[in-house]
Amino acid sequence: MKRVLTLAALVLAAGFSTTAASAQTAKAPNPALVDAYMKSTFGKAPPEWQARIEPDETLKTCNAYHNEVPSAEAEKITAREMARVVYPADGKFLGNWKEGAKIANNGRGGQFSDPPDTVSGGNCYACHQMEQKEVSYGTLGPSLTNYGKDRKYDPQEIKNAFTKVYDSQAVFACSNMPRFGVNKVLSEQQIKDIVAFLFDPESPVNK
């Protein structure tokens, strides 16, 4: 497996050399025109599905800048999103890491092929390495191995992680990471379990 991956990485590296990703210039088409296209393709979807693809203020900005927002806009976004984070009333951020491990591995939910009563997972492994022994992980986000240990299980870092998972854009404007709490993909309890998976000293993430 490793060999195949290394080979693929080499081929990719050779193909792309060092060209920097050029920032896109904003010559965006008229939003009303784009909406007309959207309507022709998704106009027959049920109203609750159409509501999901209606961009909020934050996504409108991210879309306009292709996610590369200037710092003034970025500050507006993080401030707006920070105000949306609902912290646990009991002040506790850590749940059950074993439940968190399952949530991190579960990529189901939210797809039109899912049965409507599907409980959504966090799908963290799609983008992050977490516990060492799970080799099927994506690389869209940074590795989170030893996440709690590296942060010395610091209470402030634990709170930050809750914030990050609840609303990634409260921390980093136009992050590619979903806003799990704000979009109601994960419940408060599920987020606590995930945070425990990152921060419990017994969690395999820290082994």
Binding site: Q24, R52, E54, P55, L59, N67, N123, P178, R179, N183
Partner: peptide, 9 residues
């Protein structure tokens, strides 16, 4: 580049 859906993808 248009984001949307429950995961903002």
């Amino acid at each position: 580049y248009r984001r949307g859906g429950v995961n903002d993808f």
